[in-house]
Design a protein around this nucleic acid. Structure first.
Lengths: 131, 131
DNA sequence: ACATATGATACTGCATGGGTATCATTATGT
DNA sequence: ACATAATGATACCCATGCAGTATCATATGT
C-alpha cells in the first residue's frame, strides 16, 4: 500500500521547486530536468493543481505556473485530496448491506479513528516544511 | 487508497467468528454464510493465515481451523503483513537513483514518521478488541 | 469406500495507476 | 502576420495488482 502516489510525489517536488525559484512564473520545461519526469506527465499534474486552485497558470510564451497561495498553506493532505481522491482507509466490504457482524463494525470504528489521525498528520505537513 | 484490502477484512471477521465459536475447530463451510464470502475465497485466506502460523489446521472430516494463539496476540498489523505485505507508505520514486532533491527527502523523512505511527496504531488493534 | 475437510496452484477478469500522444488555445517577440 | 512557446483538454495504452474461480491432491472420520 502506498500512502502517496507518484502524482503527489512529483507535485510536492515541483511545488518546492517553484517556492524556491522566487520567480513570477515557472514553466514545466524549466522544471522537468530537476524533477526527473517527462514534460507531458508533469504537465498533467500541474493542470490538476491549477484546476484545484493551488496554482495560477499563465499561458503563452514566457508563461508558466505560480503558487496561488503561500507555501505554508499548501498541505500534503490537500495534494492527496486533489491527486488521489479522498483517503478512505475505511472501505467497508459490506457497502449497501446492513452490517450484521459486530466484529467487523468494531473494525470500521477503529480504522476510522486511525484514518482521522493519519489525515490530521498529513494536514500538518506543508510545502514550506519541505523547502 | 485502502488501508485494508478485502483479505484482511474477511480474515478479521473469520478470526472473530472463530474466537467466539469456542469450539475445537471451525470449518470454512461453517463460516461462509456469516462471513458473506464464497467458500473457495475464504479458504484461500485461511490457508495464508495457516501458513503464517496464525491458525492451526485440522484436515479431514470434522476438521477445520483453530486460532493458534490467543485473540489478544493477533494484531491487525499482523494480518496486514501476512495478507497485503508490508506497509510502505514511503515508496520513493527515486529508488536506485541518489536523491538530489532535498525537498523530496524531507518528504520521505516526514512520511516515514507518519508510517511508523500508523503501524504502531494498527499493532494496537487485536482480534480480542473486535469480539 | 465415501464424504468432508484442508493444501497447493494456476488461471481469469477487472479496476487502477503510470505514462504517452494529440490537438486546441493563448500569449509574446519579431 | 507569423513562428514560437507555453498551457488546456482529452483520449488512449499498458503493466500491475486485486478479487475471485477452478482444479486436483491429500488427509481423516464413519
Amino acid at each position: 500500500m502506498k500512502l502517496l502516489n507518484r502524482d503527489v510525489d512529483y507535485a510536492a517536488r515541483a511545488l518546492v521547486f517553484m517556492a524556491r525559484a522566487n520567480k513570477p512564473t515557472v514553466s514545466v520545461a524549466q522544471m522537468e530536468g530537476t524533477i526527473g519526469v517527462t514534460r507531458p506527465f508533469l504537465r498533467k499534474i500541474m493542470q490538476k493543481l491549477h484546476k484545484a486552485g493551488i496554482l495560477v497558470a499563465v499561458k503563452g510564451k514566457g508563461g508558466g505556473f505560480a503558487l496561488a497561495r503561500r507555501p505554508e498553506t499548501i498541505t500534503l493532505a490537500g495534494l492527496v485530496a486533489v491527486l488521489q481522491g479522498p483517503l478512505k482507509l475505511n472501505d467497508c466490504v459490506f457497502r449497501k448491506k446492513i452490517c450484521q457482524n459486530h466484529g467487523a463494525c468494531l473494525l470500521r470504528h477503529k480504522i476510522a479513528a486511525v484514518e482521522a489521525r493519519l489525515i490530521s498528520e498529513i494536514e500538518g505537513i506543508t510545502i514550506k516544511d519541505l523547502i
